[in-house]
Design a protein around this nucleic acid. Sequence first.
DNA 1: CATGAATGAGCCTTCATTCAT
DNA 2: AATGAATGAAGGCTCATTCAT
Lengths: 209, 209, 209, 209
Amino acid sequence: MSARDPIRQQLAEARRNQILDAAAQVFAEKGFHRASTKEIASAAGVSEGTIYNYFATKSDLVVGLMTRLAELESLDGELAEPLQGDVRTFFIANFRCRMTRIARQQELFQAVLPEVLVDPELRKTFYQQYVSRIAMMLEQYLLAQVEDGNMRPVDVPLTVRSLQGMFVGLLVMRLFGDEQVQARWDDLPEVLATLIFDGLRPRSDEIAK
Amino acid sequence: MSARDPIRQQLAEARRNQILDAAAQVFAEKGFHRASTKEIASAAGVSEGTIYNYFATKSDLVVGLMTRLAELESLDGELAEPLQGDVRTFFIANFRCRMTRIARQQELFQAVLPEVLVDPELRKTFYQQYVSRIAMMLEQYLLAQVEDGNMRPVDVPLTVRSLQGMFVGLLVMRLFGDEQVQARWDDLPEVLATLIFDGLRPRSDEIAK
Amino acid sequence: MSARDPIRQQLAEARRNQILDAAAQVFAEKGFHRASTKEIASAAGVSEGTIYNYFATKSDLVVGLMTRLAELESLDGELAEPLQGDVRTFFIANFRCRMTRIARQQELFQAVLPEVLVDPELRKTFYQQYVSRIAMMLEQYLLAQVEDGNMRPVDVPLTVRSLQGMFVGLLVMRLFGDEQVQARWDDLPEVLATLIFDGLRPRSDEIAK
Amino acid sequence: MSARDPIRQQLAEARRNQILDAAAQVFAEKGFHRASTKEIASAAGVSEGTIYNYFATKSDLVVGLMTRLAELESLDGELAEPLQGDVRTFFIANFRCRMTRIARQQELFQAVLPEVLVDPELRKTFYQQYVSRIAMMLEQYLLAQVEDGNMRPVDVPLTVRSLQGMFVGLLVMRLFGDEQVQARWDDLPEVLATLIFDGLRPRSDEIAK
DNA sequence: CATGAATGAGCCTTCATTCAT
DNA sequence: AATGAATGAAGGCTCATTCAT
């Protein structure tokens, strides 16, 4: 019986994920409040009661999804590190990485974001576990770049928030169904790199032309 | 009786606003679904039934608030026009104007945004009445600037979405309670102008140093 | 002002009828409970408040309609009297008269009957003012016929209820939309007279054939 | 678990009936609209929510009761068949059977009839499932009798409606609380047989007297 | 008398959560 | 651990009735 303990744990973990998958899908489609536990249960192929063996509360499903986001984030958090060669190239690569992840996790965001915006408790947790952690990472990175002279000496904290905000905002534009953003999502990293790195100001050499 | 008609209308309009004010406040505080019509009624100082004399449905309150946002937006839509002198200065002024409005209408956004993200019907309306209209205005403006050589020839549609997204995202950061964003909201226009107009790339003259 | 009293009364009476007409129509169409006073008011071309100047209660509208039925009934109550010549011919004439009235007042019945069946108070009043009065009239009539040897010595009270029931039942069949009953309503008096007067038993002379 | 399936089903059926019983009683007493689901629930000894595990809608309770009536009807539909010996005797027997059933199911009728008269949807269903089916059976029966010379060649469709109407009408008289009808319900089959079979016309032999 | 905005009690229905099996 | 029937609180909405104008 003791031999079965790890197996049990794995099964339990699998069941948990099965439920979270269903929750993500149903929340994304109908929103937290319009999604009933019955619906989630049937989408997960389990009974309503089973959900409550793994989550104390419907809200805890959102917490579970938030945690997923945070974990997925930290999984490829390393991507931020390898900086070598051209800064602009790195920007593009980094942006591409973020955009890809956002696209892949759109369902998760759609499921989590509106409820997070509405529930103070969740909001705080989400901010601490996810938003501010990314902000801090970005901040460290930018500070280093500025110090190394790879970037201009900007107001790092606010610049970081602006960048982070831009990603959130583009996600929101996606959720709104904006055609340009949806259709040309893959072009965004390049455009953003130009915008953020080069700025809109006409280049002197271009003016020269 | 005929003399009373316009008075009636004014009273009705006032009552409508009184209810919308209460709805904005309660929705912002507790979210659409956790806010009961009873609560809104008492916050508005009217009975529950009265709400339904002015709005067919609880959801229509959100529609009403959305319309408010759209109307307030178009009210100072003219601000985009007076462009003269330094582009960068104009950017700052324009950004300041937007940031101020966002701050002023934070409650409205907090009340409307999460529900809009969740309800496809509202989402579509909001996008058409608000988001895409602003996008189109910005697009026209940027195109003109590019043509006049005041800006570099960037990908205008995506750049516009990115800018718009940045504002949305910064609003979301505010809603998340990010301290930097909240405390230094008024510094943002300047920072943004620098970021967007000048870019992060080290200036050649700075490098020269 | 005293000269206007009778005029006022006439106006009031007209207004009352205007409201009752609307009530009959709306009740017939949607039933008592699904009909709102607002609907009745607008069908009558008056405001909701006005209804309450003439009727203390929504239920009193039904009472008013019941009274109408009773009054209309007594208006041509005399028709029962002129009995002369062939009894069978009289039966047909009498039945025809009843069927015609039922058809003419179908809306009134449809409006009143279901609610009367449901509300004990109304039920009692309706029974006393309408049903039992007709029953008594019929009873007297049948008794006289039996005494005069124009009819066989049947159980008069129950026979009367059966006849009355048949009319009610045929009305109900009409309300149910039975095609035969609706399409051939005018044939019913003849058929009923045969059924009731001659019976279904094969006639001896016919048997003789 | 597999062993439990049939038990589950039986329990569910029992619960359903328990709720329908309560609904019949409360509807009969107060009418469909004045009966609240809360009342029905407590009369059934279950919670309000449980009702909705078995019926999608309050109206569906009426549908359930209608179905009961139709099923009970078809249960003893065979009674119409065994015709042998005296036609008049058969009439009495048949009438007695119908009157008994009506009396036994008075509550059901009182619960269902008023609402059926008011709701077009229910009305149609009730007419098709119940009224017209009985009419068709009666029609076939009468046609056969007429062909065999056991009855006079009357207008069968309208005669059938009249008979059916008479039963409905006598039920209505019962619901109205008519004392004669209530007190002497058991005498009605005999009286009706006389009325319908022999007619009111004085018999020649009686006249002879 | 007429009006119609305001009222608020009450209803049907949903749904997160529990618990006996 | 899984089930799903039962629960009952809560909520959106309707509507008869009132009353100030």
